[in-house]
Design a protein around this nucleic acid. Structure first.
Lengths: 343, 343
DNA sequence: GTGAAAGCGCTAACAT
DNA sequence: ATGTTAGCGCTTTCAC
């Protein structure tokens, strides 16, 4: 049990006051006209004994924790895991740390998480939230803490946000399938009341409407036990034998969809053309490779953290600060799963 | 900018002292014989105005943060992402929060992270570390903070640990391939000096030794740019045309391996039988499905957090505490990728 | 049963 | 140029 060394000990040993040590450590030496020689001596000793200021005390005093709260739907989802890893890396490079939590799309859990983050005095928030927490987020904004919504907006909430234009992504995907000659195109989406799902569905609907074709939408309730999801999908596909093309609105739906189609023995793309939102290893390496609407994850991470840090470091502590709403373009990556075989 | 409510405000409003409020809030009301009526009144008002104690101040005072530092190799790796999600969930259920960071297998970055966690006074650590930080971890142990190594041990370090018996997993996998009639079995592993890699390689070697068969091991340096990894693999496979079975020592090697084999046009399992360590969606849904050595992720998460919390809540603050080393059994999941086609 | 007061370790305004 | 000191918000001992 090594005894923790304190600023007091450092000051004592060097025979200076703790204020001097503190000032040197916080880069205020010049400003306070502390001799370079002394400053150097302090730094050297601190390094030597490995003194690390107690961040709790520091934060309590300064009101700044250098911690960012990251709230995602599910950290084990490859999309969120990847974006989280990128955000972590970028935040670290700028001296910030991340506390993350998964909501599992549960509003009650999310409320708890937000309140815990608040109690821990995180400096700012990056949030991908479930529906139903608008009031809490509004309060958060009012509290003056910087925050950026990512992946999805919240209805009736005007704040910093970094999202992907799912409507145009889905529109492109649907047009692509239409271009391949498919006319009976299904959309499998999540029933979750999430705004980004609605906009994806809208892009799909618009492409069909332009051609006067009917929609065929299957909503899957989430979260749910995998076996049920698979069964819902199998039932759906079985009930629509005329449907030979399907778009999955998220990566996990796509994964379940492939499994369901596999169970039904449907050959891709011969018997069923497939497109999924989100890209991942599975889609890329599947046989055939799956056509996807890829989200720009690197850009989402970069923009989210940039917008947040800009707000964090802006001088206007009042709520008058500027607001940034970014909408990034996804990219349709055409692969074998959606190509009409030459007949 | 809503004004933050303090314990002081609560006490003032109720016309009691802050001590009373604090005691009630910390469940010491009975012990201190505070009237039920008063306690009830405090609780109700606290609830009403949504008072949340400042965790920084609380932690500074009590020395307890209720935060656990989780250090993994890469949070975007499905294995770590899944285990992290499980650990987070289990920790939350017990009132603890997680700060996580990825090491990217970089010893210097890891040293930084550990030191930051220390400065933030996390209550305990769950660690999957790169080689080269033994000294720091030893110091951490000496400092008396509970810690559990997971996924991998560190050479010469005796601490709490939850790992998987990679040797027996690989032994089983190799025996399985031998049983299918393969004799020229390659192992593709990561050159990283990690103990769990060594033990996996050893299981493979032992199975071959028992049959008097030669080893064929390819080490891939990590981390590295994807394109290089693919090329290294392709070169390796091209250089060993007699090799018709391969085992990948981790999930990411397996993913790259499938891509490399795909590029080379090798059919699985007809031209190359494939087994990978770790299971994931890709392996499960690939055509053919990939035989894997699956790690018990749920159990790893559960045991890691249990061991840590046990240490955290044990009364012996001295280093005399008990030490737990758990080795969990992985499970060979045989799928189509490793089955000899009936000829 | 309840309240006053002493810190936890640090920063920064104010003295000197 | 450097030292003194008053908090940051909370917990908890000890006196009433």
């Amino acid at each position: 049990m090594k005894k923790k060394i304190l600023i007091h000990d450092v000051a004592n040993h060097l025979d200076v006051s703790i204020a001097t040590v503190s000032l040197v450590l916080n880069g205020k030496a010049k400003e306070k006209r502390i001799s370079d020689e002394l400053a150097e001596r302090v730094l050297r000793y601190v390094e030597e004994v490995g003194y690390k200021p107690n961040q709790l005390a520091k934060s309590l005093r300064t009101g700044k924790t250098n911690v960012i709260g990251l709230v995602v739907e599910d950290i084990s989802n490859p999309f969120f895991a990847t974006v989280a890893a990128l955000i972590e890396q970028k935040a670290l490079a700028r001296g910030y740390h991340i506390i993350y939590c998964s909501t599992n799309d549960d509003a009650a859990k999310t409320r708890d998480l937000l309140s815990v983050f608040q109690a821990r005095h995180v400096d700012g928030y990056i949030l991908a939230l479930p529906a139903g927490v608008e009031e809490e987020v509004r309060a958060l904004v009012r509290s003056g803490k910087p925050l950026v919504l990512f992946d999805r907006l919240l209805p009736g909430l005007l704040t910093n946000a970094v999202v992907v234009d799912g409507a145009s992504g889905m529109y492109d995907a649907t047009r692509h399938l239409l271009g391949q000659g498919y006319t009976n195109i299904a959309l499998v989406t999540a029933r979750a009341g999430q705004l980004q799902m609605a906009s994806r569905a809208q892009g799909y609907a618009q492409a069909l409407r332009e051609r006067g074709l009917p929609e065929l939408v299957q909503e899957i309730a989430f979260p749910q036990v995998p076996e049920h999801i698979l069964q819902e999908m199998e039932t759906f596909f079985a009930a629509h034998p005329a449907c030979h093309a399907v778009i999955f609105a998220t990566n996990y739906l796509g994964v379940y969809g492939l499994e369901a189609l596999g169970r039904l023995g449907r050959r891709i793309p011969a018997e069923m053309a497939v497109v999924s939102f989100d890209d991942n290893d599975l889609f890329r390496l599947y046989s055939p490779p799956i056509t996807v609407v890829a989200q720009p994850m690197e850009a989402m991470a970069e923009e989210s953290i940039s917008v947040l840090l800009a707000a964090l470091e802006s001088p206007n502590t009042e709520g008058t600060g500027r607001m940034v709403q970014l909408q990034l373009a996804p990219q349709l990556v055409v692969r074998g799963s959606s190509l009409r075989l030459t007949s």
